[in-house]
């Protein structure tokens, strides 16, 4: 059986829930407290694939501006999950910038876009048509997720893993 290791990055504005998504995906748990990430936290999850194991190294990158433009974090990424917060409209506009950063360093790698916090419908600030327009402009799938309930979290990472498998 083959084992393949791939680095993927999570990018998005601060407090959109990147660390919570990784925690949900890697550790299967959720913590309501918000703690800003600085730098990067690398986690690993092994996925069983038809050819063997896929070691996903998940780079949870800081969303704060001090760390948002360091190419060293992005170098060698095979793909990325780019995250916005459904309760903060301004985080939607940042998706394009992060996509540009990843592609600027790594070329045309697969990207999956994630609109997180779907468990807060009463606070929702991004309407479906805005998401659809953004999706069309960015050229990648967009999933509505909730790190809190786990909705679509697995699906978002698996979608990216499927894209990685299609790449040589």
């Amino acid at each position: 059986m083959t084992t393949i290791q791939r680095k993927i990055c999570l990018l998005g504005d601060f407090a959109v829930g990147k660390t919570s998504l990784v925690r949900r995906y890697v550790e299967g748990r959720y913590d309501d407290r918000y703690l800003s990430t600085i730098g990067v936290k690398i986690s690993r999850r092994v996925l069983a694939r038809s050819y063997g194991d896929l070691n996903l190294l998940v780079w949870d990158l800081a969303g704060s501006k001090e760390f948002s433009s360091q190419a060293a974090y992005l170098r060698g990424a095979a793909g990325a999950l780019i995250v916005c917060d459904l309760t903060r409209f301004e985080t939607l506009a940042s998706l394009e910038r992060y996509a540009g950063q990843v592609r600027g360093v790594n070329g045309n790698v697969p990207l999956v876009f994630v609109a997180n916090k779907s468990d807060l419908p009463a606070e929702r600030a991004i309407a479906d048509p805005d998401l659809q327009n953004a999706c069309a402009a960015l050229g990648g799938p967009l999933l509505l997720t909730s790190a809190k309930t786990g909705e679509n979290v697995e699906a978002a990472f698996v979608q990216l893993a499927d894209f990685l498998d299609q790449k040589p």
Partner: peptide, 8 residues
């Protein structure tokens, strides 16, 4: 050089 800062 190669630098990577603040790895958690």
């Amino acid at each position: 050089a190669f630098q990577l800062m603040r790895s958690n």
